[in-house]
Design a binder for these strands. Structure first.
Lengths: 223, 223
DNA sequence: TGACATTGGTGCCGAATTGTTACTAATTCG
DNA sequence: CGAATTAGTAACAATTCGGCACCAATGTCA
């Protein structure tokens, strides 16, 4: 096969996700004057020699002040839909961040996933795919822990899973499954959250767990 | 955020997968003289305005004669590793094709995944990621059916799952799970494959099956 | 022609997993 | 103190799973 490279314009579009008042929220930035939409995803072209996730970290840091610890690629898009910078190709990257107390820039704002303002069509697609990817991989990848601080209560953890899966889980079953997975270990700290019994704090500490492979499940075929 | 696009070189690298004599095989093309490696993945730059999957279809057609019906993006890579065409960014795309009887071009050859020749480092990564992605999504997406002809026996189907998952499955359990999933329906044809009892042919015919959602499984956390 | 090997397909049972209810524990509020 | 609230567990019923055993239909070969 005889092939030749061609130069295209490429953007990295970052979907920064964080739990925020009982919903998954996305961080958007105010568009410059004259843009068709008032808000857009933080994005930029990768620098020469810069990896895509590195670019996502840099872009996130500019908006969030700090860089999320976890990135997951959502895919490359070249669908001809409009991008704020008219890039021919977008690489969408989801960044997971624990709930942040820190101030974010004046030009940035959190929006719940279910109540986003108008976005450029390409960005709309990227957000939707990011949400879909994250929801789809929740139980194959420790994504939920990336949305929590280093230590957390089991109720916190369950709440995050409920956010991601968008449905209620049963406390006892959730804890039993978690126990069996050897993913967390208790610390000796407890947190008193006002009313109710104090909760023990746990940390994410996956243990090598050999051979728990199951049969095929044919779960969730959604196409 | 003030951003400007920059032009980069982009390649679409296609990992055409097909079951071939009891192993998953990849289709490679002979490199032009002077290349560091003798073989490479089929690849090309996308044409102006051409979607990435469209490019993958075009590239596949050139090598395979016909275009696979299913593509799954494996991700974009910009890791600085060497690409045969020195593209800065690669988009890896897995293409699934049923076992083909037809002739393939003289410059192309099937290699089992477990016995690949030397490839450019970037292509090596793309192949590994394609295999990982396909294996990871087998039970959330009807990938297995894309590796089979329109009608197939349940033993065929189970064999494909065993290829993809790389382990043996139990016949009764497999069929029970398949039954419960409403993914296939029997045809009235039977196939006699030499020895043994003839097998009924099935076709992929997913039925809308509402709300069978389970609790969290914390499966397969592999990082 | 009649064992027997080979492949397809199902029934069933004990073990493991899951969903659910109900309970106990520790704290704040009034 | 008792009610309310949140955390954590025990126990049980229902379901699912892995495995074994078996029956069915065909080809092979003495």
């Amino acid at each position: 096969m005889k092939s030749a490279v061609r130069r295209t314009t490429l953007a990295v579009d970052v979907v920064i996700l964080s739990p925020r008042s009982d919903a998954l929220a996305v961080l958007l930035v105010r568009s410059p004057a004259g843009a068709r939409e008032r808000w857009s995803l933080p994005w930029d072209a990768p620098q020469t020699g810069e990896g895509l996730e590195d670019a996502a970290a840099r872009i996130s840091r500019q908006v969030l002040g700090t860089a999320p610890a976890f990135f997951e690629q959502v895919g490359a898009l070249s669908d001809g839909r409009r991008h704020p910078g008219d890039a021919e190709v977008s690489v969408g990257i989801a960044a997971l961040s624990p709930a942040v107390d820190g101030e974010i820039g004046e030009d940035a704002e959190w929006f719940p996933l279910s109540g986003l303002p108008a976005l450029a069509p390409r960005h709309r697609t990227v957000v939707d795919r990011a949400a879909a990817v994250v929801r789809q991989r929740v139980d194959q990848s420790p994504l939920a822990f990336r949305l929590l601080p280093p230590t957390f209560t089991l109720s916190d953890l369950q709440a995050v899973y409920e956010l991601l899966l968008d449905r209620r889980l049963h406390k006892a079953s959730f804890r039993r499954a978690l126990q069996a997975s050897y993913l967390v270990e208790p610390t000796d700290e407890w947190r008193s959250e006002g009313r109710g019994r104090p909760a023990q704090l746990f940390r994410y500490a996956p243990k090598k767990r050999r051979g728990l492979r199951r049969g095929v499940r044919f779960d969730l075929f959604t196409d």
